[in-house]
Design a protein around this nucleic acid. Structure first.
Length: 504
RNA sequence: GGCGUCAUGGUGUAACUGGUUAACACGCCGCCCUCUCAAGGCGGAGAGUACGGGUUCGAUCCCCGUUGACGCUACCA
């Protein structure tokens, strides 16, 4: 395998090849869709190929259902890939966990040519060193303990069965400069580039190694990714050099932001594509909205400006492919404004023919599957079918917001209740969305804070349903869905926080 | 703290290779329409382009500095 790799020369043929490389660590993220869209547009426009690669090298954060959700979400948005784990392609496998042998071989290559070394330091040692450096107000950096071990020391360590990682040997002098296609040259001094871990002790590669190796092997010509990667790009450039490979072009897109301008996060904004789908956003609206972020679309002509938004802000994927222009990309981090997304979604909703609108309802918030699940929860609790709505309206409404008379337990203060609710949200986020998993997780939380099961569940019930009476709580949450439940809970906390600051 | 990136109304964007009363959209407010609410129509408030220096006859646009925001600073990606 190695022989064929080293025979490869610079990409002479200029077929554009781009990729997105999401990690299956949870729900598919709007950021993934955003970067995916830009890559997709670029590839489609240039007659290139768009690759989907699953970066599942972090076994601690791995979520088994995540990969399929990523596929589904991207397909829902009509962002389709030419090569990927599920569709195959000439440069597979496209799942990094199936390529560990390749990474090991390449790490060996670096070990052999002296651009990487084995590091036997323990986590505790590294932690201690880091603390010391922080205390001394020095930048935390690998202290270099194992950087120059002798062959005999290394062999002794290996013979003793000491676990090790492989680190890259970043030159101590000089600097690395690379070109970002959107911002020009960026330079990093080598003493600001740490000896990055390339291979973890569990035998899996880190992002940095896997990414460079795969991008090269998969003939990626343009690495279009989020801005958060700028600081690690010099490591990647150094890696290309260490392998003697030509490097791709780098583009760093701005990060989507919360209202407060921080990097978009689930604590402050719904970020799961599953949420947007279940809450009844149309894929056309979501994709259109994402296309609005960060520019990339050509400036409207004066005529278009006169005609208003419909001509220059509302466009289909095909129109985006035709209109997308790199020089128009804006570098400031755009705030993900749900308000505008909703307006856009409303525009698309209104444009639907009556039958299509009905179909949209029936396939999402009124699907047979959803109704069937809800029906089983209320069958024994209503006396006429006409009462169905009485018990279930919270499943269909999106403005549930209980007041303290509903959510506040009698023996609790507002403050401790909100603190507990915050903990509750964290637990919900971290728990599998099944009754079997939720029940013990919630009860454990209650015990830890000496909240009775009744208080605990009643609070949650109030937040979810807006009432103290409802169908079985856990089953209702499962039917309602994790993404929407979390969003409702988060909005509850936000509203309470806002109220509190208003009082002051 | 260190390093890096970015910077036009509350938000998303526009302003051709420097010359505009700084435009459009979302949101907000008001009016009209109307059985209500939306939608739609009309109008309004809201930025002088983060700040300070240059260069220039003239800077949102070019240069320098400052500030701020954000990102990275893991055996996460």
């Amino acid at each position: 395998m190695l022989a064929t790799m080293t025979l490869q020369t610079a990409q002479t043929e200029q077929t554009i090849r781009v990729r997105i490389a999401p990690s299956p660590t949870g729900d598919p993220h709007v950021g993934t869709a955003y970067i995916g869209l830009i890559n997709f547009l670029y590839a489609r426009q240039r007659g290139g190929k768009f690759v989907l690669r699953i970066e599942d090298t972090d076994r601690a954060r791995f979520v088994s259902t995540s990969e399929q959700m990523i596929f589904d979400a991207l397909r829902w948005l009509n962002i389709t890939w030419d090569e990927g784990p599920d569709v195959g392609g000439p440069y597979g496998p496209y799942r990094q966990s199936e390529r560990t042998e390749i990474y090991r071989e390449h790490a060996d290559l670096l070990l052999a040519n002296g651009t990487a070394y084995r590091c036997f330091c323990t986590a505790d040692e590294l932690e201690a060193a880091r603390k010391q450096q922080m205390a001394a107000k020095l930048p935390p950096r690998y202290p270099g303990t194992c950087r120059n071990l002798s062959v005999t020391e290394i062999e002794a360590n290996i013979a003793a069965g000491k676990p090790f990682v492989i680190r890259m040997k970043v030159p101590t002098e000089g600097s690395t400069t690379f070109r970002d296609e959107l911002r020009g040259e960026i330079t990093f001094d080598h003493n600001n580039v740490d000896d990055q871990v390339l291979m973890k002790s569990d035998g899996f590669p880190t992002y940095h190694l896997a990414n460079v190796v795969d991008d090269y092997l998969m003939r990626i010509t343009d690495v279009i990714r989020a801005e958060e990667w700028i600081s690690s790009t010099p490591k990647h450039v150094l890696l290309y050099q260490a392998f003697g490979w030509p490097q791709p072009r780098f583009w760093h897109m701005p990060l989507l932001r919360n209202l407060d301008k921080s990097k978009i996060s689930k604590r402050k904004n719904p970020v799961s594509l599953v949420y947007y789908r279940q809450a009844g956003f149309l894929p056309e609206a979501v994709i259109n909205f994402l296309g609005l972020m960060g520019g990339g679309m050509p400036s409207p002509t004066p005529v278009e400006i006169v005609n208003g938004a419909k001509e220059n802000e509302i466009f289909s994927l095909d129109e985006m492919i035709a209109r997308f222009e790199v020089p128009n990309i804006r570098l400031g981090g755009p705030v993900f404004d749900l308000n505008k997304l909703k307006w856009l979604n409303a525009e698309y909703l209104r444009a639907l023919a009556a039958e299509a609108f009905f179909t949209a309802l029936r396939s999402t918030v009124l699907s047979d599957q959803y109704l069937r699940e809800i029906a089983t929860l209320v069958q024994t609790r209503i006396e006429t079918l006409g009462e169905f709505g009485n018990l279930t309206h919270f499943f269909f409404a999106d403005n549930i917001l209980p007041g303290p008379e509903v959510f506040l337990p009698k023996k609790r203060t507002l403050e401790e209740t909100l603190a507990f609710a915050t903990e509750q949200l964290a637990v919900l986020e971290a728990t599998d969305w099944t009754v079997a998993a939720l029940e013990p997780a919630l009860k454990q939380l209650g015990e830890a804070h000496t909240w009775s099961v009744k208080e605990n569940f009643m609070l949650l019930r109030a937040i979810l349903t807006g009432s103290t009476m409802s169908p079985p709580l856990l089953e209702s949450m499962v039917a309602f869905g994790k993404a929407r439940t979390l969003d409702r809970h988060r909005r509850f906390l936000e509203a309470q926080k806002k109220l509190a600051t208003q009082k002051k």
